[in-house]
Amino acid sequence: MTCNDAKEMLYEYLDNEIDRDSYLQIKGHIDRCRKCCDKFEFEQSLKKLIKDRSQKFTISQTVRGDIVKALSDMRKARESDTKREKEQTNEDKSSRVIQLFLKRPAYALAAAFIPFIVSGLAVYFAFFKPTPPSPIIREIAECHDQHVNGNAVLELASSDQNELLRHFNKFRNFNFAVAAPESNDHKTKLLGCKDCYLVGRKSVHVDLERKLNRKFSLEIIDGSGMNINHLNEELVDGRVYYFGRHKGYNVVLWREGDTVYSLTSEARKNELIHVAKEGIRMRRGMAPQTFFPVRE
């Protein structure tokens, strides 16, 4: 770098407007060249001198106060303006809504119903929302559905009371006390039976028919240690009936000792309880000897 190169960059150097490389080059030159060093120092002190010796004026306190006050006043005015504008737009909005309702009363009527609909929905979801059926209700309903739709085959298809009784004696090998059901009134007819498993327990399924070909399913389930207390319950004539609903079928359960019975159909819950109470009865113990073939 020559003295002329350095001189050309003099002010950019003093004003801190050069990149690092140029700075180092100039610095290197100044350190070596006494003449340039003096010149740069002179210019630097002159720059400083101009800054230091130039007159410093201060604005009068009155004017300063005026400006500060004017600014704060304007800011306050603007703030309240904007607030008022905001309120104005809110008013506009609400008055427009009122105008619309005045023009179209039907809309107002519809709007009036909204709170009722909303509260109705809220009540429904809070209190009447159907809870998912328990596994036992689901299985019993599915089993009934299969028998009603002919997807399941009975082991014994017979309405003969004696035949059924004999078959039930066979079920006793199942190892749980199966009482054989019998029709208790002329309206109820037994159609047949089969053994099966429900909720992992040994059970016997019985098809029933009531007037007008209405199909019922009676399940006799090994209920030892089984808990059905979580189901909805109702006390009828001193006996607890549990019930549930799945797939459009009503299921009513009751317990006798270690056996759980269930009755399933499309019929209403009260009718199911009626059938359970009046339509069928359980015969306990072994069937009478006379039902068996007499051995010589």
Partner: peptide, 23 residues
């Protein structure tokens, strides 16, 4: 404010105009 007033003083050369300018 003082910086601006300083500048205004240099441009106008009198206090009154400079104060007006700053305001």
């Amino acid at each position: 404010m003082d910086t601006l007033f300083n500048f205004a003083m240099r441009m106008t050369g009198n206090r009154e105009d400079a104060e007006d300018l700053v305001q």
